[in-house]
């Protein structure tokens, strides 16, 4: 069972390792998360922990959600998300903090990438494009998108310009550099998907 937690990306910085090397790190707040619901195979068809993250004023939530949380004696939460059950002792109302992660632990981070809008084929799919100079009039266009009589159509899934970014992306094998327990902050080596302040899920490898 893999430990997981919901959090937010704050931004990037550097960390000086003991041997003096500079490590690029992403600063993230992780948790504290409250267990809102424990899903079981008998009742829900699968098992999961529903976690709530970040306090929010009551007026921001819908009444059905609010009354559900009130019944369970949980303060209103902005974000709800499901993770695997990693600790059977966790019950509705128990709090999970970033202490579940340790330094040097390898984790997987999931987030929503920055939206790029409508982009060309060069940026979106890494097409080569044409020459900029020497009389070339073919610069950033995608080029040919198919043959002639056969196939007589453009193949489905052909890489073309379009909306890019803003999708769910998972990055594996990132290392936790530091855990600042009292601030609920975790430093993860390298870059993680998303803009600053975007929601992320960090999962143990």
């Amino acid at each position: 069972m893999k430990k997981a937690l919901i959090g937010r990306k704050i931004g990037m910085s550097q960390h000086i390792a003991e041997d003096g090397t500079m490590v690029p790190v992403t600063v993230c707040t992780l948790g504290p998360c409250v267990v809102v619901q424990k899903k079981t195979p008998e009742k829900d068809g699968y098992s999961a922990l529903k976690l709530g993250f970040e306090d929010v004023p009551e007026r921001k939530l819908t009444r059905p959600l609010l009354s559900d949380l009130k019944r369970k004696n949980i303060a209103p939460k902005r974000v709800l998300g499901e993770v695997e059950i990693f600790d059977e002792s966790l019950d509705v109302g128990s709090v999970v903090t970033c202490e579940i992660f340790a330094e040097n632990q390898v984790v997987t981070v999931t987030g929503i990438t920055k939206g790029k809008g409508f982009t060309g084929a060069m940026k979106r799919h890494g097409f080569g494009g044409g020459r900029k100079t020497h009389g070339s009039d073919f610069h950033r266009a995608p080029g040919s998108i198919g043959a002639h009589t056969y196939p007589g159509e453009v193949w489905k899934g052909k890489k073309m310009p379009g909306r890019d970014g803003g999708g769910r992306v998972t990055v594996k094998n990132l290392k936790i550099v530091k855990v600042l327990k009292d601030r609920n902050i975790v430093l993860i080596s390298g870059a993680i998907p998303g803009r600053k302040d975007s929601l992320i899920t960090v999962k143990e490898k």
Binding site: I10, G11, S13, H15, I16, E18, V27, T29, K178, L180, R183, I185, L187
Partner: peptide, 14 residues
């Protein structure tokens, strides 16, 4: 930015 600055102060090795 503010959080990053305080975090940086905390992780400063010296």
């Amino acid at each position: 930015m503010n959080i990053i600055e305080t975090v940086q102060k905390e992780i400063m090795p010296l």
